[in-house]
Amino acid sequence: MLANLITAQDKVLLVSDACYNNMQFKQFSSCLYLLEEDTTARDISLNKEDIVIDYTQFVEMTLNAQNTITW
């Protein structure tokens, strides 16, 4: 299902419990972001290639996107 919605060029931001599945989502997009507050709250171990952003960057990403999908 996700393979039909996400292209390799799409930016994907994982929030809340989706942060637990960051390895699964890496197969769909090379631009994978995690919300810092959610990774901290869930004590998620990050890899050096993980991109963690804060709420300000999240808002900027949303404002700069042509389309957004939330599920």
Rank of each mutant, 00 (worst) to 15 (best):
Q27R: 01
K26H: 04
C19D: 05
S16A: 14
K11R: 09
Y55F: 06
L13N: 05
Q27V: 11
M61I: 12
T39H: 13
E60D: 09
L34I: 03
N22W: 06
V52M: 04
A65I: 06
S29G: 13
V15F: 06
F58L: 02
Y55Q: 04
Q27C: 13
S29H: 09
M1W: 14
D50L: 01
N64R: 12
A41S: 14
V15I: 09
L14M: 13
F25E: 04
I69G: 04
D43E: 11
E49P: 06
D43M: 05
C19Y: 05
D43T: 12
D17W: 10
D10I: 04
I44F: 01
D54R: 00
D54A: 01
S45M: 15
L14N: 03
A8S: 14
M61C: 11
M1S: 12
T70S: 11
E36F: 00
Q27G: 03
A65D: 07
I44A: 00
W71P: 01
T62P: 09
L5H: 15
I69V: 13
L34E: 02
V52H: 00
K26Y: 08
N21R: 13
T62V: 05
E37G: 02
A41I: 09
A18Q: 01
T56H: 15
Y20V: 05
V59A: 05
L35W: 02
S45Y: 13
T68W: 08
S16N: 15
Y20G: 12
E36I: 00
Q57H: 14
L35C: 08
M23P: 08
K48H: 12
S29M: 13
L2F: 08
N4H: 10
A41Q: 11
C19M: 02
S45G: 07
N4P: 15
F28Q: 03
T56S: 13
F28D: 07
T40Q: 02
A41Y: 08
D38G: 03
Y33A: 05
N67K: 15
A41T: 09
Y33F: 08
D43S: 04
D10Y: 07
Q57V: 13
L34S: 03
D10T: 06
V52K: 01
L14T: 03
V12F: 01
T40D: 02
F25Q: 07
D50Q: 03
K26E: 10
Y33L: 10
T39D: 01
